[in-house]
Amino acid sequence: MTDLVTVERLNKWHGSLHALRDVSLAVAPHERLVICGPSGSGKSTLLRCINGLESHDSGEITVDGVRLTSDRRTMTRVRSEVGMVFQSFNLFPHMTALENCVLAPVWVRKTPKLEAEELARSYLERVHVGAHADKYPNQLSGGEQQRVAIARALCMAPKIMLFDEPTSALDPEMINEVLSVIIGLADKGLTMVCVTHEMGFARRVADRIVFMDRGEIIEQGPPERIFDAPRSERLKAFLASILTGYR
């Protein structure tokens, strides 16, 4: 099967900072990829390059057979196949949960409004916020907002979902409700790339873990290999620092 996303020798600079160094990566259909690494390692930048929210300086990205360019129409087409969930939810505060969900299907996919609403309600139901469909984001908890954001992305029926630290802005008691929703989606075969610091979740959900540090992919492999038999010193140091916790 051909890969859904291929990234080849990607380089990106933020001013003088070399944010991504020769990053190459492929995501197969139905694959669940988790990217981890210390902050500032380029995980989020890589994710944001895949749907063109950030441009890259050299290298090539292909999504579903389409090569990313700076052309606006190409990018709109690519993004309609790529769902994204942000750390800070970014729900539209002047729209209800339901209105957030139907906006893109109605205007981009030209889905009839009633049909889009029906679909949106079923997705909101699936992420357990069906009862909040007519509430505004500021009436919802962080965990509920993030699940609405997930439903909003799903309503476009994307071929791949990108999660950019989906639980980092949440209070501890709300993290699990969001992670279990993502696990549910993963179990149904959704292709996903997730940047996260939740290692228990990563071990449970990932087919493959990619460890990044200072803009480079250092190591990748199945969770057992990465967590139980790390090879590089940097990965060992990273795992030691996050697994020991507060002393």
């Binding site: 606006r72 690519v78 309609s80 994204m84 970014n90």
Partner: peptide, 22 residues
């Protein structure tokens, strides 16, 4: 906030629609 525009872009809304609706 910039995140509003980014979320709208990620949903593949065209630019005029982002200004009009978001």
């Amino acid at each position: 906030p910039l995140g509003q525009r980014e979320a709208a872009l990620a949903l593949s809304l065209p630019r005029w629609l982002i200004v009009w609706k978001v």
